[in-house]
Amino acid sequence: MIELRGVSKTVLSGSRPLTILQPTDLTVASGQFLSIVGPSGSGKSTLLGLIAGLDTPSSGEIVIDGVDITDLDEDGLARLRGAKIGFVFQFFHLIPALTAFENVLVPLEIAGEARAGEKAAVLLRDVGLTDRGHHYPSQLSGGEQQRIAIARALANDPPILLADEPTGNLDSANGRHVVDLLLDVNRSRGTTVVMVTHDAELTARCDAVLTMRDGRTTAAAVGQP
């Protein structure tokens, strides 16, 4: 489902090049739940951003669901994300101007989904927030916002779900609830999930764990598919 070959990322820090991701090979099979752990600045989020096509690699190539995204332009990447990738952020990143329901609706509408409204309602129900649909993000708690974000990420039923420290801004109860949701998605829909996290407890529930340090992958523990 996800394949990285020799992918690296170098940025300019001041006038000196700084490699934040050393050349990395990685393959994530369809239906796998992979978590990436490591300290701050180890390159976790960079790796995730590259997979999502939010960032372009300095070298190497990335294949998503059989599509080489390395050479796609900005709009091509956007379409690919719309169809194949859902993304959950640490800071939720709901559109503040829209209600919860509408936030879920947006990706469906972008994709031109005919029955967007019905689908969004189902998704809201799935994350248990049907009665909060007409609230704006600022009126929701962090946990609720993140559940809405997950519903939004799942709207177009993507084969891949990427999550960047989804529990990092939540208390432990809410965090657990969110991880439960993600696991449930992985199990029931067969969605491939890649999650960046600090939480060691969470990694235990994953199929595989990738540990990073200083821009390198140091260990990959692969569990049951």
Partner: peptide
């Protein structure tokens, strides 16, 4: 700008 980034992340092209 952030909302725009989100929309793009959700698959909207720049033109749209």
């Amino acid at each position: 700008l952030r909302s725009v980034a989100i929309l793009k992340c959700l698959g909207a092209t720049t033109g749209r």
